[in-house]
């Protein structure tokens, strides 16, 4: 790792201030992606601002039909405390491994927007609202392609608001080595329609499969997506699976998610 200063503010305002001064700074969430990146010397910040000590960024609460997760909440906490949104809790409980889940945070994962990460699928399928230190961003506007988001430099995700659906499920088909999603599909049924978000598959990062959404909004059964497919063009092709294979898995995982959501 290159040398850097590590700041550990305990108040959000201090973190925001540290991230906005002239020193080249990066926010440090759980560090489960950033620290390995630093070890490879692929990033060279002058300063890291750890968000781990900021109590106001942590916690899960349910109010009305909305579940709100603090941006600094570790996956393990979401898995244990997001019972009001079981599909989200289950997703969080299957990210990485137990030790990673004790450190990695929802804000860090969403801000990183790894094309194979799980949380972006949940946020997009839920039509979540990402609250930052300065504004609110709809999930539909947030994800802007692989490792790219609507966040400005130094902007911190403070909370994510998930409208709780009538039924939902996330199906992850794991890449055998990393155990990230080779293809992950999150299906969420709301009174005004069904949303389907796909991670792991596309070169553009997480996306909504609108064709499936239309079909499922009309008929929320696995059979409704039978015969539908996403084009292989634009899918990721690598040593773990071809473009065609990923496109095929999108259909399979969607059907399975619908079947599981219906319980």
């Amino acid at each position: 790792m290159y040398s850097f200063e590590l700041e550990r503010p305990t108040r959000l305002a201090d973190a925001v201030k540290l991230l906005s001064d002239s020193t080249e700074s990066l926010p440090l969430g759980g560090g489960q992606t950033l620290i390995p990146t630093l070890k490879q010397r692929l990033a060279s910040p002058e300063r890291l601002v750890s968000l781990a000590g900021i109590a106001e960024l942590k916690g899960v609460k349910t109010e009305g039909g909305t579940l709100t997760v603090g941006g600094g909440t570790p996956h393990a906490t979401v898995a244990a405390e997001a019972g009001a949104y079981p599909a989200l809790a289950a997703l969080a409980g299957n990210i990485g491994d137990p030790a990673v889940r004790n450190r990695g945070t929802i804000g860090g994962s969403l801000a990183n927007n790894d094309p194979s990460a799980c949380y972006p699928a949940a946020a997009l399928a839920s039509g979540a609202t990402l609250v930052t230190d300065r504004r609110e961003i709809a999930a539909d506007d947030f994800f802007q392609g692989m490792f790219s988001t609507a966040l400005d430099e130094g902007e911190i995700i403070t909370a994510v608001r998930f409208p709780i659906p009538e039924a939902a499920n996330y199906q992850k088909f794991e890449q055998p080595a990393s155990r990230f999603a080779l293809v992950g599909v999150f299906v969420a049924k709301y009174p005004d329609g069904v949303r389907v978000a796909v991670t792991g598959a596309s070169e553009e990062g997480v996306f909504r499969w609108s064709e499936a959404e239309t079909a499922l909004s009309a008929d929320f059964r696995a059979e409704a997506v039978q015969g539908l497919s996403v084009p292989a063009e634009g899918m990721i092709g690598d040593l773990h699976g071809s473009k065609a294979y990923r496109a095929h898995l999108v259909g399979v995982m969607t059907k399975r998610a619908v079947a599981a959501a219906k319980g």
């Binding site: 590590l6 550990r8 560090g31 489960q32 620290i35 390995p36 070890k39 490879q40 750890s50 781990a52 393990a76 491994d97 137990p98 030790a99 990673v100 004790n102 450190r103 990393s178």
Partner: peptide
């Protein structure tokens, strides 16, 4: 390893399992 996967470095920090190669010493203050 250097990608947070092998788990040979797991310790407990405040009672929770963490990979000690993927947390800075200062974060365990």
């Amino acid at each position: 390893c250097d990608t947070s996967q092998c788990g040979a470095c797991v310790v407990h920090v405040d009672g929770k399992a963490v990979k000690s190669c993927t947390i800075f010493a200062l974060e365990a203050e």
